[in-house]
């Protein structure tokens, strides 16, 4: 059930692992936005830096395209359509197909950017536990007035916890109904209704039991929060990443 993929937390002690999750979350968002208006040299520079960080964290970058299944084809598709549909100086032409120079560059730039964003997110995901992600999200939400950040982070973690359970209940319900030959019924609406009634019933029942168990463990919104400490390394990295983002825009 629990599949091991490269897109999950990996224990380690690399530079990425040692950064404060709040800083990493910020870098992920800022860098991804920074790639939008960056030229090729900026993309090259950032890609090299990210690859070096991933390498230091012992992430198997080569398994990413395999893991993402359709994503590389998606990139190829975008690349081809871009190069064919952008007006400009044609490189060669075969009947109606005439890829342009501008189109090729534009397509390449776009695909590179998307791939880079994937790599940046990968760097965040492999080096940050879901508990740290929760703490970082909670930290930023607490800066917005009127947002109940504790409740949001509790719901976030319950969601992460309960999705596998709901999925296995769904599978169990499907199996039980197949065992009673539900596939003889051709009407999909009938089958959907018969599937969702027991599933929803169990989800609500579980939710009720969960609430009771949480109450008897004294659940309250004023709880000991996660411990987040930033150190010199974090502030140093903030200066470096900010410079990188500015540099991306001008070179």
């Amino acid at each position: 059930m629990a599949r091991v993929t490269v897109f999950s937390y990996k224990k380690g002690d690399s530079l990425l692992h040692r950064l404060d999750p709040r800083f990493k979350l910020f870098y992920m968002v800022a860098l991804s936005m920074g790639t939008m208006s960056s030229g090729f040299s900026g993309l090259i520079l950032t890609t090299l830096i990210i690859l070096a960080a991933l390498f230091a964290a012992r992430v198997n970058v080569l398994s990413v395209p395999k893991e993402l299944k359709l994503f590389p084809y998606f990139l190829l598709f975008i690349f081809i359509t871009r190069s064919l549909t952008t007006p400009g100086e044609a490189i060669f032409s075969v009947s109606v197909f005439a890829p342009t120079r501008e189109g090729l560059l534009l397509g390449l730039h776009f695909c590179w950017r998307l791939a880079l964003v994937v790599l940046i997110s990968l760097g965040f995901i492999v080096s940050t536990t879901s508990n740290q992600i929760k703490a970082a999200v909670e930290f930023y939400f607490s800066k917005i007035p009127g947002v109940p950040e504790k409740r949001i982070s509790t719901m976030l973690s319950l969601l992460i916890r309960f999705i596998p359970i709901i999925m296995s209940q769904l599978q169990e319900t499907i199996d039980a109904q197949n065992a009673r030959c539900v596939e003889q019924r051709k009407n999909p609406v009938y089958r959907l209704v018969k599937l969702s009634i027991p599933l929803l019933y169990r989800i609500f029942l579980n939710g009720d039991q969960l609430a009771i168990a949480m109450t008897s463990r004294c659940y309250s919104e004023d709880r000991t929060g996660p411990l987040l400490t930033s150190c010199r390394l974090d502030w140093l990295s903030l200066v470096l990443i900010t410079s990188l983002i500015i540099l991306m825009q001008i070179i």
Partner: peptide, 27 residues
């Protein structure tokens, strides 16, 4: 309680055990 799956709230064993004391606002 009887049903274990619906009492476990943490994403790891350690975190789940810490849930109660966190509610009590211990250090």
């Amino acid at each position: 309680f009887q049903d274990t799956d619906s009492q476990i709230v943490g994403e790891t064993v350690f975190e789940d055990i810490a849930f109660g004391p966190e509610n009590l606002q211990l250090a």
